[in-house]
Computed example of a mutant assay.
Amino acid sequence: MSKKVRICMIGAGRVGKLHSGTLKRYVPDGEVVALVDPAEAVLNETGEQFGIDGRFPSLEDALEKAEFDAVIITTPTFTHKQLAMLAAAEGKHVFMEKPMAMNLQECDDIIAAVEGRGLLLQLGFMRRFDPEFVAAAERIFAGEIGEPTLIKSLTHGPGLPPAWANDIRTSNGMLAEVNSHDLDCIRWLMGSNPERIYVEAANFKGEERGAHAEHFYDNMFATLKFESGALGNISGVCPCDYGYDARVEIIGKKGIMQIGSMQGMDVIVCTNRDQGLITPIYKRWPERFAWAYIHEIQHFVECVQTGNKPRVTGEDGRWAVAGVLAGTKSMLEGRPVRLEEVMDPAWPVPWQQ
């Protein structure tokens, strides 16, 4: 019988709640034994909700007073490097939510710290564990639609991100916080690294909703070219208000494949002839990717138990961050940017200086 994996959940907010619930309900081989959050009210609320007795204001306190094997990091992006490196220094395996970090130097420091101790690092790109996306990827890689030539991906979220995520200085903006999922997904499904990206952004709702950070945008459209010669685009809207919407279309030499739909469930309602047929849409991301979140945490626990390499690695996280940096540079400079322009870890990211 495999030893149960003891986990320290860093961050007691909405993603910390999601993963804590997943472990409690669906992953019997994993257990949250420590919960970390500096906000006492949030810490206690989540601790009570999921029966987590070990509650600490900092990772340092948790490391000193609790015994665990791994950490799950769900805190703001600008905190990731410090937390991951501290956990790795103490011999803990690391699962971290996207985006991996603020820049490539931070990504490289995290990877070196984890791999240098022979530990595991998994990134929270849950689409790689979603049953629909996994099945689609297998069929693409098997050649069903032929060589991929063009991909379209969108992520539209219903709510305004937290204040820190509205500022590109502390988050790299919506391209990072929302659409890094798309950046990872299209690289995965196309089987090729991005070579060039051009981003246009616009702000329609920020002022009326209290988002006043410089360079804030709530609509984004990116066009990409891959090393394979294939083309792609990404659209991002947040807040979109109508629901949570994540879809992908891939065109190959032999055919087309579509992943996802706006229909949230196979239920149709009609109450009058004026309104007509109504079918629900996904309201939030935990509904759309419910099984993906379960499978990714199950996978992480299994990797800790077996020592197998995670399906989504630090290298994947690094590529997504590179796409974010190149895309943001493109937006600010109004021109296409080649990925090679930002790939040097020593490149001083201008908006973070």
Results as ranks from 00 to 15, higher is better:
330 S>K: 05
348 P>V: 12
344 D>Q: 12
269 V>P: 06
163 A>H: 13
259 I>H: 02
180 S>W: 00
143 G>A: 13
39 A>E: 14
270 C>E: 15
156 H>E: 01
74 T>G: 05
325 L>M: 07
186 I>S: 06
196 R>T: 14
232 G>Y: 11
259 I>Y: 03
85 M>T: 11
164 W>I: 07
234 I>G: 02
291 W>I: 14
108 D>L: 02
92 K>L: 06
84 A>G: 05
226 F>A: 06
22 T>K: 08
252 G>Y: 04
266 D>E: 15
222 A>V: 04
247 R>Q: 13
345 P>E: 08
228 S>W: 04
188 W>Y: 11
55 R>Y: 02
89 A>H: 09
288 R>W: 05
100 M>N: 06
176 A>H: 11
133 F>T: 09
287 E>F: 01
153 S>L: 09
145 I>R: 04
206 G>K: 10
175 L>I: 14
244 Y>L: 05
160 L>E: 01
187 R>G: 13
221 F>G: 02
190 M>E: 03
131 P>C: 10
201 A>R: 03
92 K>P: 02
148 P>K: 04
80 H>V: 01
261 S>W: 00
337 V>I: 15
287 E>I: 01
341 E>N: 09
102 M>I: 00
147 E>G: 07
9 M>F: 07
59 L>C: 13
237 V>A: 12
196 R>Y: 09
330 S>C: 09
162 P>T: 13
6 R>L: 07
229 G>L: 09
280 P>S: 01
295 H>S: 11
207 E>H: 13
63 L>S: 11
332 L>H: 12
68 F>M: 07
68 F>W: 05
144 E>A: 15
282 Y>I: 03
299 H>F: 11
199 V>K: 05
232 G>V: 13
331 M>S: 14
204 F>L: 15
281 I>S: 08
113 A>S: 12
141 F>P: 05
57 P>R: 05
153 S>E: 04
85 M>N: 08
258 Q>A: 13
13 G>D: 15
320 A>M: 04
52 I>D: 00
75 T>S: 10
50 F>N: 10
4 K>E: 14
200 E>W: 09
128 R>C: 07
297 I>K: 00
182 D>H: 10
128 R>F: 03
226 F>E: 05
239 P>T: 10
305 Q>I: 04
63 L>C: 14
301 V>T: 14
239 P>S: 09
112 A>Q: 14
172 N>V: 13
326 A>Y: 11
307 G>N: 05
235 S>M: 06
153 S>P: 07
16 G>F: 05
135 A>H: 12
141 F>H: 14
159 G>P: 00
31 E>V: 12
157 G>Q: 06
142 A>I: 11
35 L>F: 08
111 I>P: 00
206 G>D: 07
173 G>R: 00
109 D>A: 09
54 G>M: 03
171 S>D: 10
166 N>E: 15
239 P>D: 05
123 L>T: 03
186 I>Y: 07
170 T>N: 10
109 D>K: 06
123 L>K: 05
